[in-house]
């Protein structure tokens, strides 16, 4: 692997090197342009920028859902470009949690079963599974709703289930692309609070994109993208309570 030695760090969960993604077309779009980024364990990062600045594209690259035009993504010392399609899916299963803006949950399964699903994919034994589902649903405050299908849950509750699901496989980090976009601001804050708490208490690494200024304020680190390039990367000293 060709990244510089001084960039390697035991704590780093994501490392990108001149990461670029260009969408070919009549006018090629450099959606992500030469991004060097290091994410350390336990960080709570907001990815911001105007619409079309490349947030979604960058998150997809970090999550191995999309492949870069050039540059590399190294997760936990593994260059993900070197994995086959199936290895990559398996890698995602074990290392990355995803929360999308919408359509996060499997509609035919209950909240409980949705959370359990990724553990089933990992073939985690039933006792461990059950205990962990209970615990996760409790952490996201949905123990009462465990047996409801997504259609019977509010948008905020659905996103909470999605967070619980993302955490079920004990991932290295959780990627969330505008997780609050479909929520009213009160619900959005509640979700953010919950994520912040999980980050504080359990050191779970979150990277989420958002447009919401008040959500941005909860982040410990704010990365701003403009036209696909890193414009600023600010690490706050103290978490705003």
């Amino acid at each position: 692997m060709s990244y510089p030695q001084n960039h390697t760090n035991e704590d780093s969960v994501i490392l990108t090197e001149k990461l670029s993604k260009t969408y070919e077309g009549i006018v090629p779009v450099k959606a992500v342009n030469q991004v060097d980024l290091e994410v350390k364990k336990g960080e709570f990062i907001a990815l911001v920028g105007p619409s079309g600045s490349g947030k979604t594209t960058l998150l997809n690259l970090l999550g191995g859902l999309d492949s870069p035009t050039s540059g590399s993504v190294i997760i936990h010392n593994q260059d993900i470009a070197q994995l086959t399609k199936n290895q990559l899916i398996d890698f995602r299963l074990r290392n990355i949690g995803f929360v999308f803006q919408a359509y996060n949950l499997i509609p035919v399964l209950t909240a409980r079963e949705n959370v359990e699903f990724v553990m089933l994919l990992q073939k985690i034994p039933v006792e461990v599974r059950n205990a962990r589902v209970d615990q996760l649903l409790k952490e996201v405050g949905l123990s009462e709703q465990a047996n409801k299908k997504p259609s019977k849950l509010s948008g905020g509750q659905q996103q909470r289930v999605a967070v619980a699901r993302a955490l079920a496989s004990k991932p290295q980090f959780v990627l969330a692309d505008e997780p609050t976009a479909n929520l009213d601001s009160k619900t959005a804050f509640n979700l953010l609070d919950m994520m912040a708490k999980l980050n504080e208490d359990e050191g779970i690494t979150f990277i989420f994109s958002t447009h919401d200024q008040r959500v941005i304020e909860r982040a410990k680190r704010v990365i701003t993208l403009v036209d696909g390039s890193l414009e600023s990367d600010i690490v706050k000293e103290v978490l705003v309570a």
Binding site: G63, L65, K85, N86, I89, D90, R92, L93, R94, F98, F100, Y103, N104, I106, P107, F117, V118, L121, Q122, R165, A166, S169
Partner: peptide, 16 residues
């Protein structure tokens, strides 16, 4: 389509 995309994203492999 979206749901299947989500399933692949969260780790459902091709065989499954």
């Amino acid at each position: 389509v979206r749901e299947i995309g989500m399933l692949m994203a969260i780790g459902m492999n091709r065989t499954r």
